[in-house]
Computed example of a mutant assay.
Amino acid sequence: MNFFKKLRNYMLYIVLLLILVIEIPIIVVGYLTQPVKSDTIIVLGAKILGQDPSLMLRLRLDEAIKLYEAGYAPTIIVSGAQGPDESISEAASMKAYLLNHGIPAERILLEDQSFNTYQNLANSHKIMQINSLRTAVIVSNASHIRRSLLLAQNLGIQATGSPAPMASSPYLTTKQYVREGAAIAVLFLTGK
């Protein structure tokens, strides 16, 4: 019985350590990161519903619109492929949303080949290079900013972040932070 009590205590310590080492930096970076004027804004894709952005994606797009209108960058790269359950690419949905909110078509660059954050950033980086864009503001939800900035750094992208708000649902917010904690652990192990 004493063995199981010790094992339980060790497991509790490991969980607490993981929270301190992984989750707290995700939360802190997600809320304290500030954008810097750059050559472009990269909006990372998320689920679409039909042809419309989901709530999380609308929050990202609204943040990008604010940045664009405030003069943080003259172009916006929208990044995301078409998933198996989506009727169009995430990038196409994002472009339509931006157009409907007054962003000129010539200011929107489409990246519609990526299925995850690493690909979003790697493919967006290629678009940046083709268009002589050297710096970027990465827009995603607060829980996703730290990993996005770490991946950008690994890919050689000079970037700052601009966290979009999280959904107002405590369940969805908790789910996103737990998911990002696992993704950060994988990033530390694999580099992607």
Score class of each variant (00 low, 15 high):
Met1Thr: 06
Asn2Arg: 11
Lys5Cys: 03
Leu7Arg: 08
Tyr10Leu: 13
Met11Gly: 15
Leu12Trp: 10
Ile14Trp: 04
Ile14Thr: 08
Ile14Cys: 08
Ile14Gln: 03
Leu16Glu: 01
Leu18Ser: 11
Leu20Val: 06
Ile22Tyr: 04
Ile24Leu: 12
Ile24Thr: 10
Ile26Cys: 05
Val29Pro: 01
Tyr31Met: 05
Thr33Asp: 13
Thr33Lys: 09
Gln34His: 07
Pro35Tyr: 03
Val36Lys: 15
Lys37Trp: 07
Asp39Ile: 02
Ile41Ser: 04
Gly45Met: 02
Ala46Arg: 02
Ala46Asp: 08
Ile48Arg: 10
Ser54Cys: 08
Met56Tyr: 04
Arg60Val: 00
Leu61Ala: 01
Tyr68Ala: 05
Ala70Gln: 10
Tyr72Glu: 11
Ala73Glu: 05
Ala73Met: 09
Thr75Phe: 15
Ile76His: 02
Ala81His: 11
Gly83Asp: 11
Gly83Ala: 05
Ala91Pro: 08
Ala92His: 12
Ala92Pro: 00
Met94Phe: 00
Met94Glu: 04
Ala96Glu: 14
Tyr97Cys: 02
Leu98His: 06
Leu98Pro: 00
Leu99Cys: 01
Asn100Pro: 04
His101Tyr: 03
His101Lys: 12
Gly102Tyr: 09
Gln113Gly: 09
Gln113Ala: 14
Thr117Ser: 15
Gln119Trp: 06
Asn120Thr: 10
Asn120Ile: 07
Ala122His: 12
Asn123Lys: 15
Ser124Ala: 15
Lys126Tyr: 04
Ile127Trp: 02
Ile127Val: 13
Ser132Cys: 08
Thr135Asn: 06
Thr135Asp: 06
Thr135Val: 04
Ala136Phe: 10
Asn141Leu: 12
Ala142Asp: 12
His144Asp: 07
Arg146His: 14
Arg147Ala: 04
Ala159Glu: 11
Gly161Val: 05
Ser162Gly: 10
Pro165Ser: 11
Pro165His: 11
Pro165Phe: 11
Ser168Cys: 08
Leu172Lys: 10
Thr174Ile: 08
Lys175Ala: 14
Lys175Trp: 09
Gln176Ser: 15
Tyr177Arg: 07
Arg179Trp: 06
Arg179Asn: 06
Arg179Thr: 06
Gly181Arg: 04
Ala182Glu: 03
Ala182Tyr: 11
Ala183Asp: 09
Ala185Asn: 12
Val186Tyr: 12
Leu187Phe: 15
